[in-house]
Design a protein around this nucleic acid. Sequence first.
DNA 1: AGCCTAGCTTGAAACGATTCACGATCTTTG
DNA 2: CAAAGATCGTGAATCGTTTCAAGCTAGGCT
Lengths: 332, 332
Amino acid sequence: MPSISIRDVAMRAGVSVGTVSNVLNRPNLVAEATRERVRAAIGELGFVRNESARQLRQGRSRTFGVVLESLANPYFTDLARGAEAAMNTDGFDAVWCTSDGSAAKERRCLDFLEEQRVSGVIITPVGLDAERIAELHDRGLSVVVLDRRTYSSVCSTRVDHVAGGEIAIDHLLGRRHRRLAIVTGPLLQEPIKDRYAGATAAARRAGLTEQDLVTLVRNDMTPTAGKEAAQRLLEVDALPTGVFCANDLLAIGLVNELLRAGVKVPGEISVIGYDDIELAGTSVVPLTTVRQPRHELGWTAAALAVAEAGASGDHEHRQVVLSPSLVVREST
Amino acid sequence: MPSISIRDVAMRAGVSVGTVSNVLNRPNLVAEATRERVRAAIGELGFVRNESARQLRQGRSRTFGVVLESLANPYFTDLARGAEAAMNTDGFDAVWCTSDGSAAKERRCLDFLEEQRVSGVIITPVGLDAERIAELHDRGLSVVVLDRRTYSSVCSTRVDHVAGGEIAIDHLLGRRHRRLAIVTGPLLQEPIKDRYAGATAAARRAGLTEQDLVTLVRNDMTPTAGKEAAQRLLEVDALPTGVFCANDLLAIGLVNELLRAGVKVPGEISVIGYDDIELAGTSVVPLTTVRQPRHELGWTAAALAVAEAGASGDHEHRQVVLSPSLVVREST
DNA sequence: AGCCTAGCTTGAAACGATTCACGATCTTTG
DNA sequence: CAAAGATCGTGAATCGTTTCAAGCTAGGCT
């Protein structure tokens, strides 16, 4: 019951604590016979290293914190997997926190992670100003910002959502659609704003006028919100023939509701989503969408974080931009 | 850069380290003036408590580990939220790990958590025998098993999936369906097996024969697997008129594929799912399903874990069983 | 024999917080 | 006015690791 410590192991194996520690951390320094004796003792006693003590001594832990907005969107799951995979290959662990889009909760997550003395943080900032980021940095944490343009003084990795928005609209335009609608989420979120910016830019470039381009802004980006958007759309006089939804969940809710209302997709309305989550491919009408390299995004973020944490002194911050791509299915 | 410690704060405020610690942990023991002086010093220096040191001294951390099979299913998100909420109200934190259904990864998660000296573990065991559970227990961890019947020597909380399976089939039978199909996932997973057991029991009880009840076992429980199941079903001579899918993702994939094939739902085939994830309500054909009280499940698990961790000596293990309920929508 | 070297092992000093028995002051009371 | 509480603060011991200078041994070299 009283936790087994390295000291107990040392006693059992008839060596000093220093030697046990060496077996654990630099086994090559220890003679074969001793090493085996210590390992045996560890096994017999069921010793488990106390990370708290290790961290205390080393000043920093072997884990990184990842602060995401939510885990509700399958999008994040892949990202998380990518990040975790990259961490693990370098012998680090990842710990997940969610801010639920609230600045207060985000702050709590960061406090928690700071108290844990994590090596670094990967974060999609919600209420985080550059100042607080710099502060984290000064405390010796490596910081990687996910999917945000506006933090230039740290490493970051993101998808080029402006390009993504353009791809979507260009695709619709390429299919001869001239009356378009954009269903988007909260424009305060940078990636969402960018998709919207890219989309409108592409539309304008093609000479579309204000009334050829309806915009619906929703607070959520859930299937339910998509459903409501469809209902709203159906109230409009002239139905658009092409719709770009800022994510797949919105698109799925929207398509489903349109179908329920008897509108043919893609017959009467073409719909394109964003993300390429698994469900996109298995909807009633498999969804054309803009794919984000989510796994790669997570992987890159983790790699950057690890690199910075390992760098001694001269570290150069990098901003890695990944490109989205078009996945054509049946909804357009 | 050299992390600010309690000692620096003490120096700055002109008090001893003991006093600073008291301000942090039992502020009522400290005179108002001193308390404020210390708080000011903390603020000015940007002191952040080092959890490693605290844990080392206290022998145990204020966090619990939660080991889930995956985060890919939205089902887990709610569960996680419920658990986190309960933890937070009691001043604890939760740390998430995923086993991805692999015993090896599960072991790694547990090692990680043990090294962190978490107060306890909430887990849906994958490759975990009662022995290892007991071992964790002996080491002073509180253990709560999620959604498994077979561990009687620890606290656990689960949904009565046998009842859930019965509810589903009884509902179909109630709608006069006599030729049924069950699409299920890996029967090695206890909850899945239970749903199946409940379903077949209900069918047998109603006098259905072998050939009135087709069973399709899939390895995954994803929309893609549901889609494949639909294709398989369409190859069968006599199409069943009612289908029970062991989760909503399967059901959604299946319904979508049926619709694509021109089969009317619920006109020709009725489908009932399991879980009641958000998507169930927003499908083309809103899905009838068996709802699990996920949030409550998470909450209960956390509450049990906290209770056990707080209990001194005489703790009685409890098994809490929650009931699923029927949500009727349009797919039946 | 005497000296080096290489290879192992040792043991004590951190790391930063918490705890607790014990002082130091200040009030109250008989 | 002395004794007895009350109220606050103190500082050393402690938790379990890692680290590192120093010690020991055995063997090789001159």
